[in-house]
């Protein structure tokens, strides 16, 4: 099928985009990289009256490294992240996961803000943002506010975004020198959405301390597994007793099956992903 008809607007500044969104909020949809919205338009799942194209707003496409944080503009594309020395040096978790996000041609267009705003439960980026303890910086014509990634993803394709708000940027704290990370996803084909995946950060490796273990592709939203973190806390990444407890704790998670994979399979695969991510913790 082809996309339905819509009114197309291409503002050149964030303030112009915010004004357009403010004036047309009920009927307008923001177009970021379009790698999910365009298929939805073709399938007519999305039928907005207006598309507000953010692709010409240069101020949303910058990566700024501060002393404590890296601030990534919402329209920064995955390919831009992959090419960034700052991301390579400062954000090893994001860096190691990027090649697993879709395919090269998709990463050349897809944006970090678009992925956050869509909140696809199978997407890697929302889980990576939670595991990285990121903050989402939101703006509207009236105000700006900061929402932690922990609170931002509220449900199936649902976020804390309010009408009239646009994601301006995403701030990720620079990890400490002792921090370690793990990422693993199980897919049918490289680059496909994961059947189950996990992103892990810990402030130190031996013993594991202050972990964030976030599963994706297994529930209605990325799931931070607090019980799993507790089971692993103060152990080591190859402590089989602790890992067994951590996998056992997955039984308490509210998982959701999809058309290919039932809940029990998801739970099993989440455990496999966890084990492998822990083996590759670095």
């Amino acid at each position: 099928m082809k996309a339905p008809d819509f009114n197309y607007q291409r503002p050149a500044s964030l303030s112009a985009a915010l004004q357009l969104l403010h004036d047309n909020d009920q009927d307008a949809q923001l177009l970021a990289g379009g790698q999910s919205l365009m298929p939805m338009l073709h399938l007519r799942i999305a039928q907005p009256d207006m598309l507000i194209d953010l692709n010409r707003i240069d101020e949303l496409a910058t990566i700024d490294a501060g002393d404590a944080h890296i601030e990534i503009g919402s329209m920064v594309r995955y390919a831009q992240l992959e090419a960034s020395e700052q991301i390579k040096t400062c954000l090893p978790l994001i860096c190691s996961a990027l090649p697993h996000i879709a395919h090269s041609a998709i990463r050349n267009r897809g944006t970090i803000g678009g992925s956050a705003a869509l909140a696809d439960p199978a997407a890697e980026m929302p889980a990576l943002l939670i595991a990285s303890n990121a903050s989402i910086n939101l703006v509207s014509t009236k105000a700006s506010r900061v929402v932690s990634a922990d609170d931002f993803f509220t449900g199936l394709y649902e976020t804390a975004l309010q009408p009239g708000e646009i994601i301006k940027s995403i701030s990720i704290p620079k990890p400490g020198n002792n921090s370690v990370f793990g990422f693993y996803e199980i897919t049918r084909r490289h680059g496909d959405y994961a059947m189950a995946g996990v992103a892990i950060s810990a402030q130190q490796q031996s013993p594991l301390h202050k972990m964030r273990v976030v599963f994706f592709g297994v529930a209605e939203k990325p799931l931070r597994a607090h019980n799993c973190e507790q089971a692993l806390e103060n152990g080591t990444a190859n402590d089989s007793g602790a890992i067994d407890l951590a996998i056992k704790s997955l039984e308490q998670l509210p998982l959701m099956g999809d058309q290919h994979t039932g809940v029990d399979s998801k739970r099993h695969l989440a455990g496999v992903a966890l084990k492998r991510a822990l083996q590759e913790l670095h």
């Binding site: 197309y8 291409r10 379009g34 365009m38 390919a79 041609a105 267009r109």
Partner: peptide, 13 residues
């Protein structure tokens, strides 16, 4: 200069 999906971009873009 970058390879993209021709179906996931509008001609207008």
């Amino acid at each position: 200069g970058t390879m993209v999906r021709g179906c996931l971009m509008l001609a207008a873009q």
